[in-house]
Write a protein that binds this DNA or RNA. Structure first.
Lengths: 124, 124
DNA sequence: AAACTGTATTAGAATCTATAGTACAGTATG
DNA sequence: CATACTGTACTATAGATTCTAATACAGTTT
């Protein structure tokens, strides 16, 4: 559970949230599965319960979790979440494409080169 | 010169820097052209000379400018800058591709959809 | 009843951003 | 040479954000 990267400039609660997003979207965590309690996870990560609570609140706001007072936080169904995430990624991609076009470069060419490099990395 | 967007969460010095990066890379500003002095630009943008200075220092560190004490800041040749920026964009694209692949989605499909949307936006 | 859950509130430390004033060094121009 | 312009450096302050910490309260489980 090596969640926190102190070289990462993002705040801890955001690192926790994005890690759980991935675990939920990829199905590593199943719908209705219970997440660690805020206190337990805080212990594990050597951070503060409030920091974990902030991450969980964020995940609840974005539809990744539902929380029941006294019982815990639980994973939501992920079918619609994947569509939601896909839209988010498409939005990011669009912004990147626009930045590329603004400089008079060819998005397709740059994408192809990047994809090749990404697949090279996988083979290593 | 509507540089600063106070709805943009990025710091002012970063907004200034990224605007000038674009002007330099797209050739709107020519090599060896003089940029406004830190004090003059600060007046224009109703901000502080130190904030402009921070942006200029950043641009110098990244190779967009060279600065001469007593004379001013000047645009560098942009041939190598474009290659440098291209690498940077390719890196960003690679990270996005990896994020997409981590979720088991198809990068090419998502890219094509985003490109279409970007071109629709252009037509409006 | 005891031990666990989530949630809310308040306070303080640390960091980042921006502003402000001042000072010094080099250049351009009269 | 004098003045006004340039860049650069330093210190101080204020505000916002992030994180930690302590505490309290509410609900659930056993």
């Amino acid at each position: 559970m090596d969640f926190i990267d102190y070289l990462d400039s993002r705040p801890i609660y955001e690192q926790i949230a994005s890690r759980y997003k991935q675990l939920i979207l990829t199905g590593v965590l199943s719908p209705n599965e219970k997440l660690p309690s805020v206190r337990k996870l805080a212990m594990e990560l050597s951070t503060n319960p409030n920091t974990v609570q902030k991450a969980y609140a964020m995940l609840e706001r974005e539809g990744y979790l539902y929380s029941v007072k006294g019982r815990g936080n639980f994973v939501r169904e992920n079918d619609s979440l994947i569509d939601q995430k896909k839209d988010e990624l498409k939005g990011k991609m669009k912004e990147l494409i626009k930045e590329i076009q603004d400089l008079g470069l060819d998005p397709q060419e740059l994408f192809t080169a990047a994809l090749e490099e990404a697949e090279e990395d996988d083979r290593d």
